[in-house]
Design a protein around this nucleic acid. Structure first.
Lengths: 238, 238
DNA sequence: AGAATAGTGTCTCTAAGACAGTATATA
DNA sequence: TATATACTGTCTTAGAGACACTATTCT
């Protein structure tokens, strides 16, 4: 092999920010459930950052695409074998891994709640609390994590992913990857609102997204209030 | 060192799409010059892709940031020692380099015409012709290149850069990095129009960008028509 | 009736686009 | 006066936001 290939070169790894939803059943069956955004983290059991929580990912094999690497790592610990991944950014800080020079190609993925509930063992879902630019917080039934509990530069990666999700959720059809096939417009709106941290009158929201959805002939029922029509993502005909 | 670091891992390189402008002096001194977008390419003198034209960049050293790598490579061949670089995307196709597995972290940079004219020796500037999605063409005084004359996957990289430039030029203050400190609004508009491939009435354009610029007390003259006020980028006061 | 959500109609304001017009320098 | 660019005024339209209103189900 060529001379230029005989030098000590950086390692390459992947990291994935997987988003999903956690729907909290309400105390009163007539009320709408609370919807929270959640991400997937796992607890490290070795140095560096032993005991800290990190994003799933791994070292990239010489003959492997980053997306495949991430899906492989995820399917080792769960039942995920398909999830659309979008490249976010490549993180290159020289000392981001104390063991060696490791650059990380970061991806973002979205999955609906039903699929995300099939995870067990390995990584676990934490709901994300976040303000416009303030510190983030991650929770599940047992644990509350703050930014200092996150290893490597993964907080920065999560921030970039959140920013991408927030800016794209309304335009790129990202919302639909978080929702089941069929959903009510109120569900759709609640998801958008939790992601963007902005409330909006229903009439305005509906006008804006009406051309992205299509009505089905089904609706909700037994909720103690007017039933809601179910919608699905509109199939483009162009 | 750790066991996981004893494996054959991908190489990492950088590639930079540097944009600038080429102003073509008009035949009639009273007319506005034609402005073209241009990018920097160099001709390979070794396999693979011997004789093809490529983006500047290079293999990333173990203790080097990608931006520094690019600036180092550029300053070897020219006088560039500073240029804001923005990360575009990381290209990972397994066979994008026939010699080995090499992933490329691609960046985009913008420089004004005066700075870009200080390049000599090494890489050269080509004006870019491009339609909405059609094939690209690259020209300078001696040469016309089509996409097949570009090595590696650098055409795809250029396309991503163009797309980013086109979508951000009006909002992110990118235009101002292509222009000199002071410029006329017609110049500003012409640059925006060549980048976006869309014409627009001057009145509308001016209304849109008025809050991004600030007037100076200078103006053009001796042009055989009404002089134009010079403007500069508005310094934000927040 | 009361509680809760589902869904609609309409007003205002702003920004984008179309287009016609005025202003000013040089030969 | 002719040419070329510089700059402005205004009409129309589309979309965002605010807000008030009606509709439906279950207990």
């Amino acid at each position: 092999m060529d001379d230029i290939f005989n030098y000590e070169h950086p390692f390459v790894c992947t990291d994935a920010v997987l988003f999903s939803l956690r729907t909290q059943e309400p105390d009163n069956y007539r009320k709408q459930p609370e919807i929270n955004l959640s991400i997937l983290l796992y607890k490290r059991t070795a140095d560096p950052y032993n005991g800290k929580w990190c994003l799933p990912g791994g070292f990239l094999n010489i003959d492997e695409m980053p997306e495949d690497n991430i899906l492989r790592k995820l399917s080792e610990k769960s039942y995920i074998d398909d999830c659309m991944l979008e490249q976010l950014h490549t993180f290159c800080d020289i000392d981001r891994d104390p063991r060696a020079r490791v650059i990380s190609i970061a991806y973002m993925g979205l999955m609906n709640e039903a699929d995300s509930r099939r995870f067990d063992g390995g990584p676990v879902w934490f709901t994300v609390r976040f303000g416009d630019n303030g510190p983030m917080e991650f929770r599940n039934a047992e644990t509350i994590l703050s930014e200092k509990d996150i290893g490597f530069d993964h907080c920065a990666i999560i921030r970039v992913a959140l920013e991408r999700l927030r800016s794209g959720i309304m335009s790129n059809g990202m919302v639909f990857r978080l929702l089941p096939e069929e959903f009510t417009l109120t569900q759709l709106q609640n998801v958008c609102e939790t992601v963007t941290c902005r409330k909006e009158p229903a009439a305005n929201f509906r006008r804006k997204i009406m051309d992205m959805v299509q009505e089905t002939d089904r609706c909700t029922g037994n909720k103690g209030h007017r039933p809601a029509k179910m919608f699905r993502k509109r199939k483009e005909a162009d």
